[in-house]
Design a binder for these strands. Structure first.
Lengths: 146, 146
DNA sequence: ATACAAGTTCAAGTCGACTTGAAGTCAAGC
DNA sequence: GCTTGACTTCAAGTCGACTTGAACTTGTAT
């Protein structure tokens, strides 16, 4: 298949496919002149990648999942991610309930409402993006598995 | 309080506090020379912001929530976000089950396993980041409320 | 009075996942 | 034989949420 066919079949723009190839997530089976040729199984691979993305994996993590030979899967990583999802689900559930409560509650100040305060405690655990400084720090990916 | 106290109390770096002020999310109550002075209620405000972030709001959305006068809350937006969380929770749950299954299942190829295929369908709905092109498009924020 | 730690501003950098643009290559149809 | 349109490469741009750096000012302790 040429890149346009893959694009159509996968729903991804050609630019993304080139980008994924460059990152080593997929590979083209050859060239016809300059043009990439893909074998049909790249579609499966892309589906797996989409799955990974929507489960919250980064492209690098997904890259690590495909074992050196063949598109197999790192079970440990999978289970770790499942546990992570479990935690996130719990948090989001509390968050959702909290939001609904906040919308309904008419305490003059939400900080006086015990339900709201409980919500804040949950929210606190769920911090988003800040560790920018540990860069060449090495443990980054290892740390969460301890 | 000066910025260092707020930083310590909130757990946020001073740079973030300045950034939030510039974005209009918090305000300093005055200056002592050059230095910002904050009143204690900025902590509540920051807590609310943290809450919003961890519920998945962008800083701009959070900005919209604080009604012009006083740190009150836009209930419609809150409920809409709660519904959104509901959807995400369902997806993540399916995803988590799917991951656990994928780790356990030893079909030679996951694409032959009906459970896995069902998972893929769910994953498909949960697309991450691509609409970069609708920029001056106007409806962006309005669209999700229709 | 002077040092200096801690504040300030403003511009630029970072991170991940792509997208966009410019400039070039090439197979196929007229 | 020449245009055309789909492909190619490579560099640079984008988006959100901050962080970092350089150059500067100031309150406080000595």
């Amino acid at each position: 298949m040429d890149i346009a066919e893959v694009a159509k079949a996968s729903g991804l723009p050609a630019s993304t496919l080139r980008f994924y190839e460059e990152k080593g997530l997929i590979q083209s089976s050859g060239r016809s002149g300059l043009r990439r040729l893909f074998s049909a199984n790249v579609i499966e691979r892309l589906t797996l990648i989409a799955l990974g993305r929507s489960a919250g994996f980064s492209l690098d993590e997904i890259g690590e999942m495909f074992t050196p030979e063949g598109p197999d899967i790192n079970r440990t990583l999978l289970l770790a991610k499942a546990d992570e999802l479990d935690r996130k689900i719990k948090e989001l559930t509390a968050m959702r309930d909290g939001l609904r409560h906040a919308a309904a509650c008419n305490a003059p100040n939400h900080f006086e409402c015990p339900k709201f305060l409980r919500l804040l405690r949950v929210a606190g655990k769920n911090r988003v993006r800040q560790p920018n400084k540990l860069k060449d720090n090495k443990l980054k990916r290892g740390a969460q598995l301890t």
